[in-house]
Design a protein around this nucleic acid. Structure first.
Lengths: 182, 182
DNA sequence: AATATAAGTTAACACTGTTAATTTATATTC
DNA sequence: GAATATAAATTAACAGTGTTAACTTATATT
């Protein structure tokens, strides 16, 4: 998985063959099939690792504040920064077109857990009467769309004449929060 | 291009081989290479066709109203709906990492032209004193991030238990506009 | 020492995008 | 109308892909 992740990150999922991975770890290609159902499954398991780290980071940041809106703001920022700090990995997990039904068990995966951190803090905000809408699911997904949008745009279209990175990130976060605040 | 577009949309870019396209149009696979440099070029040209229509659609929608905020709202909606209606093509232009040499193309591409329609209507909103920030570029890119985010999430993570599609789209648009309105 | 099981490999299949050489069809000249 | 030039399309082939089934080697258990 370490070898595969490095190669996926460096060269892209589609450009890394099972034989290349096998060469790197000194095994034959078919040996990988003893431990992973197929190439998609290999990617899926790597994604789980990354999801788990992201969820952990966000939870750690939530500990630093008691103000729900502050927690929300810093959580959103951590998500974006996590993506920008590990652009290749973010690309693989969140941007790279997922070849098949890789997400069929999303319900129980670490991806769901990462998203749950967002849902949790939104619930706190609603409980504290800080928002003007009280549909947790709807707001969570709306915010996710916003932070995923800026992250993936900055990663992908690096040569587009964006305004300064930190200004854009702040603007997205500020706009989103201003848009839902009571 | 018609045959290829249909198949890309129906089955996904990766699952359509040059031979399958050739079969559908009654030619041999290699004939396609007389008219397109390679498979990516074929898709790229299909995208240009489609996104010329997007820019056209948005401009047409702007004609239907004089209220800048209404124009903005309906333009954002059209962008998202267009992406959802042409997921394969949206994917290749805005999501899939492009080879380095194509990137300069983006400056003059029809996708960029679509973004310019956004910049134009934002300028109108600022001129009418409807927004609380008056940096055209910053706001345009912030909104682009938001609508790109929801579009790409809905396209790529189809198995995620999203709330009803139209509700999420509305929520993103409402939140963004509420976040920038004066 | 014999056997059962785990781990890994080889050979092969049915594909893929793509190139080079070759054939077939159409147009242009004599 | 015949000969030639050009355009259009094809066939054969290459090097690669994910993946399966059959086989071999290593390790553990009796």
């Amino acid at each position: 998985m370490d070898a595969a992740r490095e190669m996926f990150v460096a060269e892209g999922y589609a450009n890394v063959s099972m034989r290349k991975i096998a060469d790197k770890i000194g095994y034959s290609a078919t040996t990988i099939y003893l431990y992973f159902k197929d190439k998609n499954d290999l990617l899926h398991q790597i994604c789980e690792q990354t999801f788990a780290r992201l969820a952990q980071n966000i939870k750690a940041i939530y500990m630093l504040s008691d103000n729900p809106l502050e927690k929300l703001r810093s959580g959103l920022r951590e998500y974006i920064h996590f993506g920008l700090k590990h652009p290749s990995q973010y690309e693989i997990v969140f941007i790279t077109p997922l070849p098949v039904n890789i997400e069929s068990d999303f319900e129980a995966s670490n991806g769901r857990m990462a998203f749950d951190t967002l849902r949790t803090v939104i619930t706190e905000c609603i409980a504290a009467n800080l928002l003007k809408v009280n549909d947790v699911e709807l707001i969570s997904q709306t915010l996710w769309a916003g932070i995923h949008g800026v992250t993936s745009l900055l990663i992908q279209h690096g040569n587009f004449p964006f305004v300064e990175r930190e200004r854009l990130v702040d603007s997205v976060i500020d706009t989103l929060i201003a848009g839902i605040k009571a």
